[in-house]
Design a protein around this nucleic acid. Structure first.
Lengths: 151, 151
DNA sequence: TATTGTTATACTCTATAACTATA
DNA sequence: TATAGTTATAGAGTATAACAATA
């Protein structure tokens, strides 16, 4: 008696699609998509910039995808690549002054987009959802994210 | 102090990506991807077949995407398009005997794939997650799915 | 030898527009 | 006039492989 609409995997995909659409719509006026917004946020939140490898790790993307995302943001002068003082292979991605300003506006817009889709859930329910999703993202204890990617 | 990893929208995208990957891997041996599996399931669960419009509605896809999915499943003889007895525009998608058999095996494989990623959550927690996601998918009361698509 | 970033390529998914046949 | 299915197309996202520079 468990149909597709009771399948957590299906529901996750469906909910994600709806929220991404709502967020992309909300960010469109700022010239951002949700993926770029994520990179901008992580760059801004890092004090001295974040390596592209770390970006890929946090976002769950292949490093080659990060190259294109950073290229786009750099072309718009929202982030810049700085040489790492400790490892000449690395390039630390940091937000520019323009990027920081846009990021603040994007925070508001993105949050509104998400809320549009999560509107029925109370703050407490959203907190519960957040906690459960964080554990799903953390993955099974015995097969962590790094192990999986490396394997 | 709320970083990206506290953003429900981001977590939803990230969790969805992980679960879809795990499920696609689990279904690969059967020659199915998660999208096709969803269509097969809905076709099999309907007694006399489901219209492509209804498939699109439930899956949150554009009707044109459903055409390609059904084409693939029909080419593999897992589903077939039957004429609707009541509306000659409609074509009802129903599972073939082969489709029903494969679907049963796919159920097991897909469930294992999802569990591999949700393994840390208890059955009760998964039930909680299911309920919350269903409400997210249902969307805000004042702006339902159908209204949004039509608008 | 292994890692960081990069380029290249192919495939899947998403988003629109337009068309046909039926209603 | 509106709806079900279809075709076509372009853009975004995903998955691999291989390479240069550096560790």
């Amino acid at each position: 008696m468990t149909g597709l609409t009771d399948d957590v995997g299906f529901l996750l995909t469906r909910a994600s699609g709806l929220v991404v659409r709502a967020t992309n719509t909300a960010l469109a006026d700022l010239g951002l998509r949700v993926r770029q917004y994520s990179v901008l946020t992580l760059a801004d939140d890092s004090s001295d910039g974040i390596s592209q490898r770390d970006l890929a790790e946090v976002l769950g993307l292949d490093p080659s995808q990060v190259v294109a995302l950073v290229d786009e943001l750099a072309a718009a002068e929202l982030v810049e690549r700085r040489p790492s003082p400790t490892d000449r292979r690395q390039r630390l991605v940091a937000a520019t002054a323009n990027g920081v300003r846009l990021r603040r506006r994007a925070d508001t817009a993105a949050a509104a987009g998400v809320q549009r889709q999560l509107g029925d859930l109370t703050a407490e329910e959203q907190q519960t959802l957040r906690g459960l999703l964080q554990r799903v993202v953390a993955g099974p204890d015995d097969v962590g994210e790094e192990t999986r990617r490396a394997g």
